[in-house]
């Protein structure tokens, strides 16, 4: 495929208080190509939403973003003045939010809110902007767009509102679309529709999608690549197919094992496995691997130094024990090295 449109190198996000910065996302690097979906997966508090906001330069104070680069189409967004950043936001990189119920301004019609993006970034007449907004409403499959254009958000269901948010995000045909848990707040039946819609539009426009989620079911169906975040660090990143077939990091394995699954016919429904313990607090991060205290295969070395990211098959993984795990399960190893 082509050059990546978004390249993140050694991104750090932290919270400043009393002159000290507590890191929440550390040394995170990844890249996304046009037309590709990268899923960023992790528990609450793993820093995945924070990463999403950092991509748009929207981390609220006291958050601090630093690092080498967030290169969007070759332009580094880190350190860019607010004025330039504003020109990029909504135009070249756009975002879909978790809560469609509150993401729209209650006192403006949805038409006005979609037109706003276009008028803010492009020199077009209001008439042209309106025509485009109507087109977008049709593209996100909102029936009766002409009439809906003049509706206020409270007249729309959650799924419809999320479609409007998607229309707003795609209004200027951005190179990168960041979707922060876009379906968490929606009904299950609507979830699939929204994700399919994102997939279709991504294919039509060649948009790169960064999908932030904790739902592995969503990941399996919609992502090309998966990045697993634990306590602000990347622990594994691989092609989705490979990751699900043979998760390498003990944390990824735990996540996949913790997924509810439909049993086969007549199968006894087993109790869901869980990962014991919780993500360590930002201030009390252990020295070595952050997952070591909860890890079933951790050994003394794990708590001494941070495990480095090493190449593994279609991606990389950060675990000292990864070789031993393979040795124990040779049939899975073959997939990794395929």
């Amino acid at each position: 495929m082509s050059e990546p449109v978004l390249q993140v190198r050694r991104l750090n996000v932290g919270f400043a208080s009393r002159g000290r910065v507590t890191p929440a996302v550390r040394d995170l690097s990844f890249s996304v190509k046009a037309g590709e979906t990268l899923a960023i997966v992790g528990e609450s508090g793993s820093g995945k939403s924070l990463t999403a906001f950092a991509l748009l330069g929207l981390v609220p104070p006291p958050g601090v973003v630093s690092g080498e680069a967030i290169a969007l189409e070759g332009r580094n967004l880190i350190g860019l003045p607010e004025k330039r950043l504003r020109e990029v936001r909504g135009a070249r990189i756009a975002m879909i939010f978790q809560e469609p119920m509150t993401a729209l301004n209650p006192v403006l019609t949805i038409g006005e809110q979609i037109m706003e993006v276009i008028l803010e970034h492009e020199r077009v007449s209001p008439r042209a902007a309106k025509a485009r907004a109507l087109e977008l409403l049709a593209q996100v499959r909102i029936p009766d767009a002409e009439r809906r254009f003049h509706d206020y958000p409270h007249r729309l269901s959650g799924g419809m509102r999320q479609r409007v948010v998607i229309a707003m995000a795609l209004a200027c045909a951005p190179a990168v679309l960041v979707a922060d848990e876009p379906t968490t707040a929606l009904d299950v039946t609507i979830q699939a529709q929204i994700l399919d819609l994102i997939d279709t539009l991504k294919r039509e426009h060649g948009t790169a999608v960064v999908l932030i989620t904790h739902d592995l079911g969503v990941v399996a169906e919609h992502a090309d690549r998966v990045l697993v975040l634990y306590a602000g660090r990347k622990v594994e990143e691989r092609a989705a197919r490979d990751l699900f077939a043979a998760p390498l990091h003990p944390y990824t394995r735990g996540l996949i094992a913790a997924r509810p699954r439909l049993g086969g016919r007549g199968a006894v429904r087993a109790r869901l496995t869980e990962i014991p313990g919780t993500v360590p607090g930002l201030a009390a991060m252990p020295d070595g691997c952050a997952f070591a205290p909860r890890c079933p295969v951790a050994e003394a070395a794990c708590t001494l130094a941070l495990p480095p990211l090493v190449p593994a098959g279609t991606g990389s993984v950060a675990c000292l024990r990864v070789g031993d795990i393979h040795a124990a399960e040779p049939e899975r190893l073959s997939v990794v090295h395929a």
Partner: peptide
């Protein structure tokens, strides 16, 4: 509120 964040993400000045 969330919709102000949305407006920022849209690049509204």
């Amino acid at each position: 509120q969330d919709f102000v964040r949305t407006a920022r993400a849209k690049g509204v000045r």
